[in-house]
Simulated assay, not measured.
Amino acid sequence: MMSNLFSIFDPSTNLFNMPINWFSTILGIMFLPFMYWLNPNRHFYFWNFIINKLHNEFKILLKNNYFKGSTLIFISLFSFVLFNNFLGLFPYIFTSTSHLNLTLSMSMPLWLSFMIYGWINNSQHMFIHMIPQGTPSILMPFMVLIETISNLIRPGTLAVRLTANMIAGHLLMTLLSSTGSNLSYLFLMMLILIQILLLILEFAVSIIQAYVITILSTLYSSEVN
Rank of each mutant, 00 (worst) to 15 (best):
S123N: 12
L87E: 02
N151A: 10
N52W: 11
P132E: 06
S221N: 06
T179G: 04
G180P: 05
K68E: 15
P11L: 07
N225D: 10
I153F: 10
A210L: 03
V212T: 15
M143I: 09
L15V: 14
L82R: 00
S206A: 10
L216G: 08
L61K: 10
I138R: 13
L100R: 02
L158F: 15
N56V: 09
S221H: 11
E147L: 00
L82C: 01
I200P: 01
F86I: 07
D10G: 02
S150G: 12
T214K: 12
M166E: 00
I215P: 06
L175A: 13
H99Y: 00
S3A: 12
L15A: 15
T97A: 00
M18A: 09
H129E: 14
P109L: 10
N121I: 11
P33R: 01
M143R: 10
S105I: 00
R161N: 15
I50V: 09
L102D: 03
S105M: 05
G134V: 10
F6G: 04
F31M: 11
S181T: 06
Y36D: 01
N121M: 08
S3T: 12
H99M: 02
L191R: 06
I167W: 05
N182I: 12
V212L: 13
F31T: 08
S150N: 15
N182Y: 12
L162D: 01
I8D: 00
F34W: 14
V205R: 08
F6S: 00
G156A: 10
W47Q: 14
I207M: 04
T95I: 02
L61A: 08
H55P: 02
S177Y: 14
Y117T: 04
I20M: 06
R154D: 07
N48I: 04
N85F: 03
F203Y: 14
I207S: 00
L61D: 06
M115E: 12
T214R: 08
I93Y: 01
N84L: 03
I149Y: 11
G169V: 04
N56I: 07
I215S: 07
Y220I: 08
Y92I: 09
T97W: 00
L77W: 06
F58T: 03
T148H: 01
L32T: 10
M143L: 12
L186N: 04
S222A: 09
N151Y: 13
L38Y: 11
D10T: 01
N14S: 15
N84G: 00
V224P: 05
E147H: 08
I131E: 08
L100E: 02
Y117S: 05
L104K: 00
N14V: 07
I8K: 02
I93N: 04
L162F: 02
S70R: 15
P33K: 03
M166A: 05
A164N: 04
I8M: 02
L110C: 08
S177D: 13
I196E: 08
A210V: 00
L191Q: 10
I116L: 13
P91I: 03
P19T: 01
F34Q: 15
L61H: 06
I208L: 13
V205M: 11
S113P: 09
N84I: 03
P109G: 09
M189G: 11
G134R: 12
T71H: 05
N151F: 05
N41S: 07
L5H: 04
